[in-house]
Amino acid sequence: MTMPVFSASNDPGANFLELVRRVGLSPDMSQWSEALGVPHATTCVALRYSNGVLIAGDRRATSGNWISHRGMEKVVQTDRHSAVAISGAAGPAMEMIKLFALQLEHYEKMEGRSLSLEGKANQLSSMVRNNLPAAMQGMVVMPLFAGFDLLASQGRLWDYDATGGRYEEREYVAIGSGSMHAGTVVKVGWKSDLSANDAITLACRSLWEAADADSATGGPDALRGVYPIVATIDENGWNKVGDETLAGIFEVIAQEVRSR
């Protein structure tokens, strides 16, 4: 563990990404290409409910027509009050989430306070923008950012485009290959006064329908005990829904499908 030393005029401050660059740990993206056939992560949804925001994603990663991973965690808590979900090239995407979470923690420790939620959303935007050279070679990373804004006392969510364009959504958003089906289900069921439980059920339904229609989206896998990741974020922070609860919800949905 060597301690990096910088002169006062050359100090990276609380910026972890800049620090990583200065010590030479940043990757060279120029050779990345779609031809490498790396795994891709798929469907994620986020929606606001009465006192917070929910974020969820399936667990499948695909390489072409292969299922490359069944247990990928593409919804990640990034600090106490925020989370990121990603779709797109899995390697760069997971690295981006890891760096983003570290940046939030690094800033908090260096400055002695957290970034505002708006500030965090902006930070992610610049990280997506920095990935543009890789995105041009097919390695697109599409994140979704959700969190509870302690200044505004409400849940908020954002999605991004490949150039780092940042769009705040007022109701819900879905990304990835199954986003059309998942988004439609959420759109039909969404109300501004959804309770946390209603929001969880709605998110599960949306992922069920996406998995039903899109081969790249994984459904609940009762055989292996692998369920989508569903988490709520409210004033008290991140709360991941347990697998038993999800198993119960998906069982109800399955019953409904059987009796159609």
């Binding site: 563990m1 060597t2 990096p4 030393v5 972890f16 620090l19 740990l25 690094h106 420790k109 260096m110």
Partner: peptide, 25 residues
């Protein structure tokens, strides 16, 4: 302090969170 935070975060990033320990710092 800032040097310590940087060294610790870099070590955790490069290797694993379990590899950051007080003795090294």
């Amino acid at each position: 302090r800032q040097m310590g935070v940087r060294a610790a975060d870099l070590t955790g990033y490069q290797f694993s969170r379990a590899d950051v320990e007080g003795r090294g710092l």
